[in-house]
Amino acid sequence: MKILVPVKRVIDYNVKIRVNSEGSAVETNNVKMSMNPFDEIAVEEAVRLKEAGKAEEIIITSVGDKGSQETIRTAFAMGGDRGIHILNDSNTEPLAVAKILKYIVDKEGIDLVILGKQAIDDDSNQTGQMLAALLNWPQATFASKVEVNSSELKVTREIDGGLETLKLNLPCVITTDLRLNEPRYASLPNIMKAKKKQIIEMPISDTGVDSSPRLETLKVEEPAVRSGGRKVADVDELINVLKEEVGII
C-alpha cells in the first residue's frame, strides 16, 4: 500500500495571531511557522501503518512556498519516505489543493490518502472531502481510530452524538481528528537520516491545475474584545436590566 500524506505549513499554534496593518490578512512576516497539527497526526498514522507492515511507502506532499520544504523534512524525520513539493508562492484554495492532490494520486498510484481534517489557519475543513469527490473514492472524516485489514478499513469517527464506525475499501481518503494518536517528536537521529530523503520540486503550473482564486477576502478583523460583565443585586434588577438596557425581554 502506498500512502499519500499532504502537509500544510501554517503559523505555529503557539503564536499569538495578529491581523496585518492593511486588515487584509493574518500577519505572517517574521512569524514562526510549523506543520499543521492535524497533519502531524496524519503523518504519525501513516508511519504507524508502515511500522505495522501494512504500508510500503509514505509520500509527503505540500503545496506552498519554498518554506514548505522544511515542513516536508519534518514529516521525513517522523518517518515519511519521499516528498513532492508543489511550489506556489500565493495562497492555494482548498479546491485547487484537492485537484493537485488528485493529480499526484493518479500519477503515483496512491492507495490511501490521510489528511488533517482541517488546517488551523483557515479552518476550511474541505480539502479531504473535495479530494474524495474528485477521485470518486470513499471517505472517512474526523477519524479517531483506524484499523486496516488488507484492503478493508474500519474507521471510527467522532460525530456530534458519539462515535460512528465505518467500513470502507481501499482506495480511500481519511481525515484525522485530534484524538487519533499522539504524534512522535522528530528525533535528532531521524532528522539526520531525513537529509538523504528526496524532495521533488514542481511548479504548480506543471500540475495543469487552475489555481486562480475563486474567493475574495474582503476584510480580516481581530475578534471583538469581550467587554467586562457586571454584578446585579437581585432578580428584580436583573429583569429590569434585561428589559431596559439589553432589550431582550
Binding site: 522544511e70 523534512r73 519534518t74 524525520a77 522528530a186 528525533s187 535528532l188 532528522i191 531525513a194 537529509k195
Partner: peptide
C-alpha cells in the same frame, strides 16, 4: 535540520 530539532 537544526530548526526542526529546535522545534522538537
Amino acid at each position: 535540520s537544526f530548526s526542526i530539532f529546535l522545534d522538537t
